[in-house]
Design a protein around this nucleic acid. Structure first.
Length: 260
DNA sequence: AATGCGGGGGC
DNA sequence: GCCCCAGCATT
């Protein structure tokens, strides 16, 4: 008779069951949380998401509010293209319903489509984010592409499936199997783990300094536009042009403003 | 496969 | 200072 898998017990006791978006299985609520979590730490999203969802509780509500309201509500969360894409996705959903393939929605890729299906519908699909990739790579003992990581996720997460598999492995990655200072002694996977610590090369992506970067310049223009329409002459022209190209700003009559 | 894309938390 | 963060779109 097989023993109860350690990850079941660990997840029941130590999983982040307190995270606000885990209290819902509403697709729209889950989607908004997932988009907000793209490259943004859980602690920040915890603070911002409840108010954001209350403001845009349904796709129709967001579609009706228009892109400017969504971009403004996004505030300083970063990557404002996410807000633009989310609004555009809301327009599609409000008009024609949820598509069969969520990846057809703007701003929704392989990970997010699977993560929404698993959490909202308990679909038995794997989804690889930075946390789960780190966990399964360390357990297996080497770098894995998306497909191989998904296969490994199913094996490593067994007997969990669907929603619980996703969330349990996410929590292991975030709380124990961390990029820095992993807590292997407390890990439910340690007996099957090939590495028990960071891989020799986990290939963390480098990002240039934010200070003095073009991204910072874009950010400054976005901050001005969130505050209100601004004469173009007062703004960084290159950064503004880049924002216009991304659908995050419009210029008319020498004044720049948020779109919509 | 490699870049660009915010902004902030934590050390 | 540097590293990291529930990715996606584009090239």
């Amino acid at each position: 008779m097989a023993r109860r898998a350690p990850i079941l017990d660990w997840y029941a006791r130590h999983g982040r069951h307190d995270l606000p978006w885990r209290a819902t299985r509403d697709r729209w609520a889950v989607l908004t949380s997932e988009v907000m979590l793209h490259q943004t730490q859980v602690a920040r999203v915890e603070r911002a998401w409840p108010e954001f969802l209350a403001r845009f509780p349904t796709p129709a509500a967001m579609a009706d509010a228009g892109p400017a309201a969504v971009i403004r509500a996004w505030d300083r969360l970063g990557y404002p293209r996410r807000a633009r894409h989310l609004h555009d996705a809301a327009v599609v959903i409000a008009a024609t319903g949820w598509p069969d393939d969520l990846r057809t929605l703007p701003g929704v890729g392989r990970y997010t489509a699977a993560a929404v299906a698993a959490q909202a519908d308990d679909a038995d699909v794997p989804a690889i984010d930075v946390n789960i990739r780190r966990v399964v790579q360390r357990v297996v003992g080497g770098r894995l592409g998306d497909r191989a990581a998904e296969d490994a996720m199913i094996r490593v997460g067994a007997p969990l499936r669907g929603r619980d598999r996703l969330l349990a492995l996410m929590d292991v990655g975030a709380l124990l199997c961390r990029a820095r200072d992993p807590q292997c002694g407390a890990c439910p996977l340690r007996r099957r783990c090939a590495t028990r610590g960071p891989l020799p090369d986990e290939g963390t992506r480098r990002q240039g300094a934010f200070r003095g970067s073009f991204r910072e310049r874009r950010g400054r223009v976005m901050a001005a536009l969130r505050a209100g329409p601004t004469p173009s002459a007062e703004l960084d022209a290159e950064a503004l042009a880049s924002l216009v190209a991304d659908g995050l700003a419009v210029v008319r009559g020498g004044r720049a403003r948020l779109p919509g």
